[in-house]
Design a protein around this nucleic acid. Sequence first.
DNA 1: TAATATTGCATAGCTAGCTATGCAAGTGTA
DNA 2: TACACTTGCATAGCTAGCTATGCAATATTA
Lengths: 142, 142
Amino acid sequence: MKFEKEDSAGYLINHMARLFAKELQQRISPLGIVVGQFPILLELWLKDGVSQKDLLSKIDVEQATLANTLSRMERDGLIKRTKNPADARAQLIWLTEKAAALRNDAYQSAQNVNLQALTVLNSTEQTQFLELMRRVISGMRK
Amino acid sequence: MKFEKEDSAGYLINHMARLFAKELQQRISPLGIVVGQFPILLELWLKDGVSQKDLLSKIDVEQATLANTLSRMERDGLIKRTKNPADARAQLIWLTEKAAALRNDAYQSAQNVNLQALTVLNSTEQTQFLELMRRVISGMRK
DNA sequence: TAATATTGCATAGCTAGCTATGCAAGTGTA
DNA sequence: TACACTTGCATAGCTAGCTATGCAATATTA
């Protein structure tokens, strides 16, 4: 029996994911943010003043991962937390002004990574690629 | 300006990579190995008794990542290291019998993950998907 | 209403990955 | 041959991710 890495979806995906993350990290590090914070920021830029639970429902990571990333974001002055009047266990999560101001630059960085990475594909292929990924993901999400 | 995660290649790739890793981890954990060891084992199953440098040239991670994973593999009884007569800085890396014996089961596990994950695509789409990924990767590898 | 179950979040402890740095062993050169 | 340079690997220190567990606050139920 043999196994060819270059024909293994899992291997290729893992490798590609690390290349993307590295590329994005380089582009956003001047903004003072890191890749793991990106999905969280995306949600908070849409709407802040939410509970961790609300955030969790929109982000594809485990609760513990989110909690840890949030605490680093608080440490780094990207978010603040206030009491939730409705529930003493939960807090409300707010962007700081500093973090709010990063939005456009961050969007641009991410778009640029995507654009550049996909330039090797033509427009039809790009659309196809995204669609294939969405299907694989939804098939795996159980 | 807006940003849609579901249309972002980077976001989808990251998410998909974590789903794959989780799936593979579940399948190989009965074998006593973990996902980060997989690429290294793949190479050693082909040929062991090699230096870390040789391994590194075949594996798409940084040298420090490899060194750390190797030391956990040694701790876990998957590899042994012997002196390299040709160079006192380097050592030769060998699979233990235990690790050598895992090969077929491990191959099978990985194939099963790939097969199951890609069942949502037809045969043409599967081929296409792999090809698109290979092109994106080679475009990003600088 | 008291006891029990659930929820919301934090923490512990681990692997996987990265960059940066250190250092001994080997190589090349004045 | 002595000295500088390079190489092979290890280590430090960090983020990102996971599972498992703990715990106080809330909700449910007998």
